[in-house]
């Protein structure tokens, strides 16, 4: 049994150690994602706590294949919601980079699958480095300077890659009849 399977089992057993174990393994990771989006440590911590609560309430019946992705998806959505609520109250000082890509309301499950297919196809066909930069910026909301440092390239180079990828994605979505 893998560590993740063990943690999921704890959730199923309604054992509170599930949250401790999940926090020990993924706490820092989740906090990074939340902090990147909210630009605030305290708000980020609140989001991570909300994530554990949400996981507690949804596992079971959910049985995630990848616990990491499951928790990350919850924390990301929670942080984005919080950000939007702060923005509505004019508390968010910065524009969320994720907003640069626009939003899409899938009319149904089929629509979701379609957009997932197009997006995956686009990212798989991109150069690995470009894809990673794009994902780290627009999924994990990493600051551009951190991405530049990671790859040892200039800020300009990162912006240029993002700019190029955004244009290509817009084109691809338009070709597929998906409007964002």
């Amino acid at each position: 049994m893998s560590a993740d399977e063990y943690i999921v089992k704890l959730f199923f057993d309604r054992d509170r150690r599930a949250i401790e174990e999940a926090d020990q393994k993924y706490g820092k990771y989740l906090l990074t994602v939340a902090k990147n989006i909210l630009q605030n440590e305290q708000d980020g911590e609140e989001c991570v706590n909300d994530t554990y609560l949400s996981a507690w309430n949804t596992i079971p019946p959910q049985k995630p294949v990848s616990l990491k992705r499951y928790l990350c998806s919850i924390v990301r959505n929670s942080a984005i919601s919080k950000y939007r609520s702060q923005k509505a109250q004019k508390r968010a000082g910065v524009t969320l980079c994720i907003d640069e890509l626009g939003e899409y309301a899938a009319p149904d499950e089929r629509g979701s699958a379609e957009i997932r297919r197009v997006l995956d196809e686009f990212l798989k066909l991109s150069k690995p480095r470009d894809m990673t930069i794009f994902v780290y910026r627009y999924y994990y909301a990493y600051p551009v300077d951190k991405i530049a440092n990671r790859y040892g390239i200039s800020l300009q180079a990162v912006y240029k890659t993002l700019d190029k990828m955004k244009e290509q994605l817009r084109k691809k979505l338009n070709e597929e009849g998906i409007t964002v």
Binding site: S66, I98, D99, Y104, S112, D120, T132, Y139, V180
Partner: peptide
Amino acid sequence: MNKDIMSYCGDDILDEAD
């Protein structure tokens, strides 16, 4: 509610990016 486009990103892509 509308979702941001990257929330549709597949797990395998995210794993690859990581």
